[in-house]
Design a protein around this nucleic acid. Structure first.
Lengths: 169, 169
DNA sequence: AATGAAATCCGACGCGA
DNA sequence: TCGCGTCGGATTTCATT
């Protein structure tokens, strides 16, 4: 596939992405109105963004609290050398695990989990704890989540980023 | 609003949520076909899910790597007693910050950040570090993300969850 | 700009807790 | 009875050529 060398998103692409990240169900008509472009032109750009994989899909955002799972926690696992829990598919057995990340550092795995209650969370932690040392951080509140992805270039300059927008490779 | 007492999602609701989390752009026709319900009935359920806030919105899922931001990290901040960085809106100044969570424990804030490169990430960490002690975990890979929310009840039983599906209101 | 398809809205009927 | 799903048809809106 063309994993490398994305076709360089321009300003219009980013405007489209911003709109679609805020509301994936916009019609091409409405979208074209906001972007100030013709409908077919917008449709063609969206098609290209989908095909190149920049737009990976469209998902309904479900509010966990409203769906009976108000509790959230981050769990870092420090695994025995060889077997790392979740080595492969162990995460499939736990619907409560919403994210799995492999980390650098001594705690090799970062989980984000959801639970219906403190009791539920307690049971979950107990089960996961069997696989190795762990560190748990219960989330009290979430000021920001699902922040849309925005372009990283241009006006705001991060010290050290002198032309390195090309991701490496 | 009715933050409390969600109308109890039934199996059909969860099937709808599963489908819409996988593809938010399904037509009601297609959706009704998969759920084995009539289109108007499905539309009515979806409308109710939206109104009750269970469905918070619909978002295009943008692949960060394809959009020029392949790097990701978790950053825990340990803040000075009074001012906690991001006390309010400081996160708005950093588009790289995609999530902000308040934690229990000694490190009061958990950030998830995206960056275009290691150099970019380095600069970002340097800037955030001015606000207090921090602990950074660079993500090497992400086996699971955006796992859809699923019902927590029933067949799989977590020790300690004996009827406590009700979230504690 | 025009065509064909699909969604939304409406009222009425049947079924089951 | 009341809630919920189904059916049929009219109108608007969208996607595509």
């Amino acid at each position: 596939m063309n994993t490398s060398r994305s076709p360089e998103l321009d300003d219009v692409d980013w405007k489209i992405l911003a709109e679609l990240q805020a509301d994936a169900r916009l019609s091409f008509n409405e979208l074209s109105r906001r972007i100030h472009l013709s409908a077919p032109a917008v449709a063609e750009r969206v098609r290209r963004l989908e095909e190149s994989g920049v737009i990976a899909g469209y998902a309904a955002r479900v509010a966990p609290a409203k769906a009976g799972q108000p509790m959230m926690a981050f769990i870092q696992l420090r695994c025995k050398l060889s077997r790392c829990l979740l080595k492969t598919a162990a995460a499939d057995d736990f619907p409560e695990i919403t994210e799995v990340h492999k980390l650098s550092g001594e705690h090799c795995t970062m989980l984000k989990v959801r639970a219906a209650s403190l009791v539920h969370l307690e049971g979950l932690i107990e089960q996961l704890g069997e696989h190795g040392e762990m560190r748990t951080h219960i989330v009290l509140s979430t000021p920001y989540e699902d922040r849309p992805l925005t372009p990283v270039t241009a006006d705001r300059d991060v010290s050290g980023a002198d032309g390195w927008t090309g991701t490496g490779r």
